[in-house]
Design a protein around this nucleic acid. Structure first.
Lengths: 337, 337
DNA sequence: GTGAAAGCGCTAACAA
DNA sequence: TTGTTAGCGCTTTCAC
């Protein structure tokens, strides 16, 4: 049933129906009430496409996950989406998903959706560092957009930025380790440069602990690489009493390596991971790690986007959702007790 | 730029432009070619809403995740979505996400989208068992829909069904355990009735091994419950040489409990989980478990939906994507070697 | 093979 | 407060 038919059946004009269905427009409460009731009764639902065509707004936003630029692994995407959807729901927006499937098609598709006005706004995950091309594309248009990335992105009018503040958690790890009494600390890195390493090192410095270059190993990504690097570290004359691994994947491997060498964790060696992948809770001992609240991340991004959608002229301040230390059982004071 | 403006600029009618952009309609190859080129050149993209309004098809489908009826945990949702999107892309459909956020709002929203014609079809995850209400709702309409659930759903014209065949993996576990020489096997369940337990028991029976009632413990969901149940099992006079846990979460707890009792896995006790959560790969030893290929699941569901979208009159055969045993290191022959 | 024109269902001026 | 009506941008008969 369309609006005409419906209006005819209940004996009012289409304009009145339209007014009853929206907040705005002058209409007597009684009429509105009546129309709402009868709409439910007769099962009338306005055609979205007609609405969108005439208003020029789709009330849809797209979540674009740039596979190339994964700053969040798949695992966290659902939490992110949930956060986004939660926040979106309050404003009557829907969520369109755009997981990268075929990198080729991806930006075509995305561009298509923007250009064809299928979505009013965009949330791009993984932006800044890697997909400069896409960022340029977005910046060139005027579609409200928020980027979720490691480095804040600034300077584009209609583009908001939510950065994952990696430094915070890294500093917490440094403080916690030093408080526990560790002075000989190692870092198992994944790549360089690394904001986590930078913040960790700086904080140790501040605390007077220091992180010698010799104790920083750039291992890679796989647990095997983590195990390998760990063995090297432990082969040193003066082995670290605590190791901070850049990712839980590395930490998992490191943990296994340590055990194989008959080291007890945390008594003989404290270990801290990063990311809080779900396996972290299930290692033996459960891994102390660092995580970011993806639900919050999604909500923050959404709040910013909605703001941008409502008032495109005001440029939102970049915001940051920072990582947090999650204490479990893989850290203890040094010295076998 | 809209079609009128574009048509005017390149000196043809809107009808010709429209024809050039679609497969159908008689048009000279030369003209089409020319129009396509100039469209790209001038950056003309048809307005989706107008297209949808006039054609009555949105080329969108919604993925509905019924939180209450989770048959897939969050972890697997991304793989599922990826599979769906991959298959969808080939047919030019987009994906709208509907994670359950507020159970209240959920079906409202979903219904809204169907009724307002925002989506042409639906993929419902978790349907059958739990959300009969929603199923009824869907069945009442005539929107093509496919359900991903444990039990196949049949009998509704425009509703397809993709079932997760749990029996297959369960049988594989039974066979593998018996082949390894186990005769005294325990089962750590989560709830009852359970298709996995049923298939496991039946297969053991067939193999002449049998599963005595006494060795079936319904533990619950958490690892703690798994550990607890495991301790009970191991306290028995004749302890099992192998245990099949209904979920990896339970198995994780069970594994920990076994270790605390100084049992070696797999030498003293073989353990098999179910689901292949990511932690399963990282336990010590890595957990042998059972998994379902969510990518495939998504693709199968999508193929069925697209088929339904194209030919609503033909009723698709229910299909099944079954679970598979993933061998890792938590199973060995019984008897300490 | 191409163009003219009638809607698709809705919203929002403008009139009443 | 309510009704009338002109589009929103596109597809698709129906003429040419």
């Amino acid at each position: 049933m369309n609006i005409q038919e419906f209006a005819r059946q209940i004996g009012v004009s289409t304009a009145t129906v339209s007014r009853a269905l929206h907040k705005r427009g002058r209409i007597s409460p009684a009429t509105r009430q009546m129309i709402l009731e009868r709409a439910k009764e007769l099962g009338y639902t306005p055609n979205l496409h007609a609405q969108r065509l005439v208003t020029g707004r789709s009330h849809m936003i797209a979540l674009d996950y740039l596979g190339q630029a994964q700053i969040l692994s798949d695992m966290f995407l659902v939490a992110l989406a949930r956060g986004i959807q939660q926040a979106l729901q309050a404003h009557g927006y829907g969520l369109l998903l755009n997981l990268m499937v075929d990198p080729q098609q991806h930006d075509t598709l995305q561009r298509q959706w923007v250009r064809s006005q299928a979505v009013d706004g965009l949330i791009l995950v993984g932006g800044a560092e890697v997909d400069r091309a896409m960022l340029r594309e977005v910046a060139a248009g005027d579609t409200p957009c928020v980027l979720i990335s490691q480095q804040p992105v600034e300077g584009v009018a209609h583009v908001g930025s939510v950065a994952v503040g990696l430094a915070h958690g890294a500093r917490q790890v440094a403080r916690m380790l030093v408080e526990q009494g560790h002075r000989c600390i190692g870092f198992l890195g994944s790549e360089i440069p690394d904001p986590v390493l930078a913040a960790f090192r700086a904080e140790l410095q501040t605390l007077g602990a220091g992180l010698s270059e010799a104790r920083v190993t750039i291992a890679g990504r796989t647990p095997e690489e983590g195990a390998q690097a760990m063995r090297q570290m432990l082969a040193r004359r003066r082995r670290p009493t605590a190791v901070f691994a850049r990712t839980d994947a590395l930490a998992l491997g490191a943990l296994r390596a340590a055990k194989q060498l008959s080291l007890r964790v945390p008594e003989d060696l404290s270990l801290v991971g990063h990311d809080d992948i779900s396996a972290a809770e299930w290692t033996d001992p459960p891994l102390t790690t660092v995580r970011v609240d993806c639900l919050e991340l999604g909500q923050a991004a959404t709040r910013m986007l909605v703001q941008l959608l409502k008032q495109p002229e005001i440029r939102p301040d970049p915001c940051e959702v920072h990582t947090e230390l999650v204490q479990r059982a893989s850290v203890a004071a040094p010295g076998g007790r």
